[in-house]
């Protein structure tokens, strides 16, 4: 019978905290950059210019339809060979995860924008607004409200996806716990603790999302 011993983890508390810091910081970066790529992707797919539409569509499908693990390895190991671009593991994984998240954000943002009634942009145009002004003043403020639940959901997935950067030896929570597990021969306790740490951050967040959704529903 296996004897659980969670006490052993105390020895590695600084390692875990370091890892957690990297994981959270990394999430902030890839969520912000991912949203930026997402906005570009969405505007690209909605563009009047066909080459831009094709480019945006290629970006979205390339990253949406391939495994993130392969993308991480590809960005770090294949890009230097193919394009001569050398990146640190952190840059490579931040870029891959931002683009991966961006491809999903794109579709969420595009969906939000096209869900706004055509009459809204017509009313803007009739007042004499340019398409850019209409997008900024009329369509986006309404669309963002509708996108928020889906964007939050995708950001939670982004947070969990950071666990994959350990394959490139980025010292996140999962990587540090691998170190701890090898050192202590206690992988079960270590990984259980990792799961608890992720959940402890995400569950309060999901509650916040639910509350946000309810508040938005009331103001509709």
């Amino acid at each position: 019978m296996y004897q659980w011993d969670f006490g052993i983890l105390w020895t590695y508390r600084w390692l875990f905290l370091n890892g957690l810091g990297v994981t959270v910081g990394f999430t902030v970066v890839i969520v912000v950059c991912g949203l930026l790529f997402g906005l570009l992707g969405a505007f690209g797919t909605l563009s009047r210019f066909k080459p831009l539409r094709l480019l945006a569509l290629t970006f979205i499908e390339a990253f949406r339809c391939t495994p993130i693990l392969v993308q991480l390895i590809w960005f770090y190991y294949a890009l230097p060979i193919l394009a001569g671009v050398e990146m640190t593991p952190i840059t490579a994984s931040a870029l891959a995860l931002s683009l991966y998240g961006g491809s999903f954000y794109s579709e969420i943002i595009r969906g939000g924008i096209i869900s706004i009634d055509r009459g809204q942009s017509e009313a803007g145009a009739a007042l004499g607004m340019t398409p850019v002004q209409t997008m900024r003043r009329i369509v986006l403020p309404q669309a963002i409200k509708r996108m928020i639940p889906a964007l939050m959901n995708q950001s939670i997935i982004q947070f969990k996806n950071t666990s994959l950067v350990s394959v490139l030896a980025v010292p996140d929570l999962v990587y540090q716990s691998q170190v701890a597990a090898h050192d202590s021969y206690r992988p079960l306790e270590t990984y259980t603790a990792v799961a608890v740490a992720y959940a402890a951050i995400l569950i309060p967040l999901t509650i916040l999302v639910r509350r946000g959704e309810k508040r938005l529903a009331v103001s509709e």
Partner: peptide, 24 residues
């Protein structure tokens, strides 16, 4: 072009069947 169109439309007012007020 878009600018010319926008400037032109600023001189004509339009009222729609479904109001199209900005709900936000």
């Amino acid at each position: 072009d878009v600018r010319t169109l926008a400037n032109f439309r600023a001189t004509t007012g339009m009222v729609f069947q479904h109001f199209n007020l900005f709900p936000h």
